[in-house]
Computed example of a mutant assay.
Amino acid sequence: MVPSIARAVAQDGERVASCSKCEQRVFHYDAELFCSVCRWLVPDVNDRLAERYAATGGACAPDEGACPGCRQSGAGPAVVFPVMCPECGASHRISQRDVSLTTGATLRCDCHFPITIPTDVWCPGCRLNLRGLQKISALIKKANEPDSRVGDSVKQPPLDRTARRVIGLACAGERWSRTVCPARQGQLLDGDHLDMLLFNDGQIADWILDQVKLRSLGHRLHRDGGMALMAAVAQRVGALDHGVLRLVDMVWDGIGDWQG
């Protein structure tokens, strides 16, 4: 970010940047904060920025005609921002050019988890620039969390998020199945054994934890919406990743009237 700020200062004489967490305009840069030889920030830049923040009494007012959300006048340069997979923790990068203003984006991780990039990563004011990185990370995390209660309409986003959670757990369980002995492979698909682990207090081994979570999610769906809701989620799973649907069927076997 430093070179881009330096270019803006060289061109316009100053640059006011926003905090990535609170999105307030709190960093006031000008030529005094850059070395005239190497064009990098001076060593005491943080102290000087703090003095300027105190002198203005807090955040800087937006420029005339600037967006009240991102505080920019027009569209800034396109950026590439980091995305962490909520399932396996792998790090990815995506360009804002690949994120639709109307539908967002989906980034498929190597663990097969489809990471949802929601549309609200865009500034709600101008819809031309992205929000701060910390805000983006929080929004992506929220968009990929399973809901405590799932809606009963297949058109609702919560259903899609639950289907993606099902896919992530099923893929993780499938990876574990390739590393364990045949006896444990059978336990991964044994509904009675998964229920025993689920409903008894005690530590659950890593190799079967994802299958227990998947079984638990099936019970919760049945509790909230019965077979109709389970079927609706399974339908979305099949549409998003048909390859894991058979595994989901077997893990949910015996929940209500569900037959794997």
Rank of each mutant, 00 (worst) to 15 (best):
S73E: 02
I5R: 12
G256R: 12
K142V: 03
I94T: 12
A17L: 10
D201F: 08
P82R: 07
L221H: 07
L41E: 11
S18K: 10
G238D: 06
L101S: 06
G132E: 03
G89D: 02
A231E: 12
A239I: 05
G238R: 15
H242I: 08
R178N: 05
L133P: 00
L133E: 12
A183G: 03
P86Q: 08
V251P: 02
E14S: 14
R175E: 07
P62R: 14
L130K: 13
V79S: 09
C171A: 13
A138D: 11
E32S: 15
R236F: 01
G151S: 14
G256N: 10
A234R: 14
T119E: 09
Y53T: 04
D98P: 00
M84T: 09
D195S: 15
A90I: 02
D47T: 12
Y53K: 10
E51Y: 04
D110R: 15
S100Y: 06
R223G: 09
S73W: 02
A172D: 02
A231C: 03
G76E: 02
W252F: 06
D152F: 08
I5K: 09
R127I: 00
R7D: 08
H28G: 00
Q96R: 13
G191S: 12
A90H: 08
D224C: 10
C126D: 09
V180D: 02
A17C: 13
F27S: 04
A61G: 11
A170C: 05
S216D: 11
D257E: 13
G225F: 08
L128Y: 01
V233F: 04
I136N: 03
F34T: 05
Q211G: 01
L133T: 14
T106G: 01
L128C: 02
S95G: 15
E14A: 12
P68T: 10
T106W: 05
L101R: 15
A163P: 01
G58C: 07
V121C: 04
T179G: 01
G191M: 04
D47Y: 07
V248W: 03
H242C: 04
G76V: 03
I94P: 01
Q96I: 04
K21T: 13
P146K: 14
A234K: 12
V212F: 08
G218M: 03
E32K: 14
R48P: 00
R39N: 14
R178E: 09
L198M: 15
C70I: 02
P124S: 14
G218W: 02
C85I: 03
S18H: 08
S148C: 00
G254L: 06
F27M: 08
S4W: 08
I167V: 13
T103S: 12
A234W: 05
W258V: 04
G65H: 05
R108G: 00
R236P: 01
R175C: 01
A55R: 10
S137C: 01
W40C: 11
R178P: 00
K141L: 05
M250P: 00
N129L: 06
R97H: 08
E23M: 15
G218Y: 03
N144G: 03
A54P: 01
W252Y: 07
M227D: 05
H222N: 14
A6Y: 11
E145H: 12
P77E: 10
S20W: 09
M84W: 02
D210A: 14
I167L: 07
T119A: 11
P77M: 11
